[in-house]
């Protein structure tokens, strides 16, 4: 028996760690990983509420979110590689092409 509050608390903390990583890290790869972490926190909530309400929709949508995460990471890593070719760095503060 899992208490729903425990699920919500852990998913909240995972999401906060993800947000903190996106905000304070400078490495584009680590930022992408933090985005994945946030998607996983959302998935935890989906599954917890699916279990709570006895419906399978939450689990189906968690699977869809997993697919979206895979698509997103493919595009994101391609962007990182392209950026590394052009600018020879993956540190986000070195990338200031649009700064006037």
């Amino acid at each position: 028996m899992v208490n729903l509050n425990v699920v919500l608390l852990i998913s909240f903390l995972l999401f906060s760690i993800g947000i903190a990583g996106v905000l304070i890290r400078r490495n584009a790869l680590v930022i992408l990983m933090c985005v994945e972490l946030m998607l996983n926190a959302a998935n935890l909530n989906f599954i917890a509420f699916a279990r709570h309400s006895g419906s399978v929709s939450g689990q189906a949508f968690a699977l869809l979110v997993m697919g979206f995460a895979a698509a997103e990471v493919a595009v994101g890593l391609a962007l990182v590689v392209a950026l590394y070719r052009k600018r020879d760095t993956v540190q986000v503060d070195d990338i200031n092409l649009l700064k006037g």
Partner: peptide, 17 residues
């Protein structure tokens, strides 16, 4: 972290996920 989240899914009886 991902493996542990998978463990969380398993403990919520979402085996396939």
């Amino acid at each position: 972290a991902m493996l542990c989240v998978a463990g969380c899914f398993l403990s919520m009886e979402a085996e396939f996920l």
